[in-house]
Design a protein around this nucleic acid. Structure first.
Lengths: 198, 198
DNA sequence: CGTCTATTTGAATGTACTCAAAAGCGGTGG
DNA sequence: CCACCGCTTTTGAGTACATTCAAATAGACG
């Protein structure tokens, strides 16, 4: 009946709400499947974000580029995660987020208009997106606190604990741009830590 | 019919959903009005948060205390704002957030259990809280980016622009604990800026 | 296999912190 | 209503964490 990719997203939804088979079919019919090659952009800054993306395989990265040309990573999206430029998606205005693929990545896209229609047709989806937004908010606020209260070393340790699988798949440079240090300094942190352990 | 405080919260809800008079009455009946004296705690760390609070007058502050005893402010809640320890409220586990009053503050409390019942009775409330959670997420993520890409001076300027009214009402020490610098350093930033302007 | 990018290492620099002390301000009680 | 006390803010000198710039090495992709 369903492909493995479709099973993955239905299970993701199923964590918070129950859908009847016909509702599942309807939801699946709204999705647009897409493959993003390594390093290709799914969303570019100053564009209007019109879809939510669900990652089936691969890994996406949401980041901004500051006035000095430095990249700052807001979010990594490995399989089973949702990603979008929430500001742009909600406001309908151009955003500052870039979303690209760290490796070849397969996603489902859900158009904003379809998402809004879904809220009206199946109000449980309103509940679903409320819940995952709440969870995102909790982790975003925790990140604000961590950035203020922890040293670079502690933020790196925290990242390793929080995303043990990502450490080996994404480039260190990207981890540095997530925890908020230069790649050079992260390298020094790691070598210091290693010498301490020996 | 309604007190000014009740009008304020109904208008706050009315920004995103429409309620019939009987629904308004029902909602109002769920609220618990409370006055928090200056410096008193509404929520203490390691407690379980069981309410969302809506500020009618005064100003609340949500903050944590780190391993070295330093306070970090996650949120200020002036009138017309909602505040809670989202992590604790959602998980039912003890949280790390303290919420206290910067001045004598009047709030409405909405119990978690009533909020959940409200979702079932009036699904539009699910929409309401989805929308304000989305907005909170957008601003929390923006704050993560600002903390990574802006200098202390720029974060202070940003704060002044974003909360022009708060600057004159909240102690500088608290603003420092919000933008992530020591009170001494914020004082130096301000004096530097002033000299530059002369 | 070659090129391009990521990572490592080192020295010099800068931004923000620590500690200390004085000055200013506000809230509370007499 | 004033005066005092405590907390906030200011100022300065010394320090530390993290950055910048530069160059060498390692690694990955086509």
């Amino acid at each position: 009946m369903w492909t493995p990719a479709q099973q993955l997203i239905l299970q993701n939804i199923g964590k918070h709400i129950e859908l009847r088979p016909d509702e599942q079919s309807h939801f699946i019919s709204l999705l647009d499947s897409k493959t993003i090659p390594r390093k290709a952009l799914l969303l570019k800054e100053h564009e209007v974000c019109r879809h939510s993306a669900f990652v089936v395989a691969g890994c996406l990265r949401g980041y901004t580029v500051d006035a000095n040309g430095f990249e700052h990573v807001l979010q990594f999206a490995p399989p089973d995660w949702w990603i979008a430029d929430m500001y742009s998606l909600l406001s309908g205005k151009p955003g500052q987020l870039n979303i690209d693929a760290l490796e070849a990545t397969e996603v489902f896209l859900l158009a904003k208009t379809d998402q809004e229609q879904l809220y009206r047709d199946i109000p449980r989806f309103e509940r679903f997106f409320r819940i995952i937004t709440e969870k995102s908010l909790v982790s975003s606020r925790q990140r604000v606190l961590d950035n203020m209260s922890l040293s670079a070393q502690e933020r790196y340790d925290q990242f390793c604990r929080q995303y043990p699988t990502l450490i080996h798949t994404i480039p260190q440079k990207q981890i540095a741009a997530y925890i908020g240090v230069t790649p050079e300094f992260l390298s020094k942190l790691r070598s210091k830590r290693k010498r301490g352990a020996i």
